[in-house]
Design a protein around this nucleic acid. Sequence first.
DNA 1: CAGATGATGTTCT
DNA 2: GAACATCATCTGC
Length: 208
Amino acid sequence: MATFTPHEQAPLSPKFFASSAPEVARALVGQVLVHENVEGVTAGIIVETEAYDANDPASHAFVGRTPRNAPMFDIGGTCYVYRSYGIHWCVNVATGARDYGAAVLLRALRPLAGLALMAQRRRCDPAAKLDPVHLCSGPGKLTQSMGITSEHNHTLLWEGPLRLVQGPPDAPPVRLVAAPRIGISQAKDVPWRFCLADSEFVSRPRPR
DNA sequence: CAGATGATGTTCT
DNA sequence: GAACATCATCTGC
């Protein structure tokens, strides 16, 4: 790539999101999340995801449709944003057919564009945290850096200000590691956390 | 490095 | 009230 301008790339098509949550979760690693608003453009390569299925005790959708998890039951490619521990936003991508409640949690990005804006949104110590490793290495951090809030809930990720686009065409082959998911109390052993192997941008604990 | 803890809003019992 | 798909900051190795 001579120059890879994230906000000019073609978005992923609806078909991309039509398969199961674990399949989409794997396929999303290496793709790019873009957000443009009045503050500017931010973007990052997805390096870590987690899948949450309808028949999955750890999933918000396990209990059936509720006001909160309704976007998980919309068409694959719908954005599901919820508040986590009262403080952070977490962003998900619905997968599969309408009325099937499944989604992929975006857990970490390698920052690509708008790093200064990300640092500003994170309100870090001016000195310390220009280190890109700390900008998007966790689901709460990446929504803060990217400026993602509940206003993006229920939008479609192939159009609008928050989009998923194809990653750089000449990116090196993506090596994936599957591991148990983080921070859950149910179905702890299901290996539906997918990380780019050896990436310093994934959240902790780093899988091997 | 691991482990504990407080901050905080929303959902569900 | 309790639980929660988290994070920053603290303690003690």
